[in-house]
């Protein structure tokens, strides 16, 4: 990549689950060429500034990236207030998120700058969503799971109409390569969850790489959350993510 490349970033309309029209943040290199795509799945608190900045970071590194606002059906308003309303309603349904991600990938592939390859990447609850999306949507070419919690579910009370099945149950359906990043001090997913996920991927012969970081807990990429951010681990993690994406998304 050449440094300081230009990019274009804007809020666009995309077609999500059930044909619903929603907003998404779309950032891509401004230079001519074909680029791999990334569907970036936001975390539970909302479509916040950090997710928007991370969308631009991926574009800066040469990936046409779209971050769908998974809560667009809740209407307009500050992302934190919209997120609070979604939380109060029990979150978003898994099938809806998968449908929105498929719509976002279709948007990327329809652009003249697309090289045809699209990864799904998510953080926290979005990591869980990304894992589930890779299980349910074979059109994705790579999965980046950053500390997705509740991929493994021990307490059946955490399963409900919106989230009826633990994503790990669908692991056999994953067709694409996987990278997983985890903090060893994380509570969800904790070390046992990560080990069990890895064991299932290994048992099923999946193409995966897991990276575990000492001295890091949940959300250690997120510099907007001071207590969670770990600069050294985040820098190494981003290098591994970009190496993985460059390896698996070249046309």
């Amino acid at each position: 990549m050449s440094y300081y490349q230009g990019l274009i970033a804007e809020t666009i309309e995309f077609t999500g689950h059930n044909g619903d029209k929603g907003e998404a943040y779309y950032a891509r290199p401004s230079r001519a060429g074909k680029f791999p795509g990334v569907v970036l799945i936001m975390h539970m608190p909302g479509w916040d500034e950090w997710i928007i900045e991370t969308t631009r970071k991926l574009a800066h590194h040469g990936f046409a990236t779209i971050a769908p606002h998974l809560y667009f059906r809740e209407g307009s308003g500050p992302p934190d207030d919209v997120g609070a309303r979604v939380r109060a309603a029990g979150g978003v349904a898994d099938d809806q998120v998968v449908g929105d991600a498929k719509g976002a990938a279709a948007y990327l592939r329809a652009q003249p700058n697309a090289n045809g390859k699209v990864a799904v990447m998510g953080f926290c609850s979005g990591g869980r969503h990304a894992y589930l999306i890779a299980c349910k949507a074979p059109e994705f070419d790579a999965l980046v799971d950053c500390w997705g919690g509740n991929v493994v579910v021990d307490d059946p009370k955490l399963l409900n109409a919106k989230r009826p099945v633990a994503p790990i149950e669908f692991t056999a359906n994953i067709k694409c390569p996987i990278i997983g990043l985890f903090g060893n001090d994380d509570e969800n997913p904790n070390r046992d969850h990560v080990n069990r996920t890895e064991a299932e991927l290994k048992r099923l012969g999946k193409n995966y790489e897991f990276h575990r970081y000492d001295g890091a807990g949940h959300a250690f990429f997120n510099y907007s959350r001071g207590p969670a951010y770990r600069a050294e681990q985040a820098a190494d993690g981003w290098k591994k993510v970009f190496a993985f994406l460059n390896k698996n998304l070249s046309a």
Binding site: G83, H218, G226, P227
Partner: peptide, 14 residues
Amino acid sequence: ANVYYDHPYEAHLD
């Protein structure tokens, strides 16, 4: 009152 113990949106707390 909706009460939860989770990652905050704004506060610099884990």
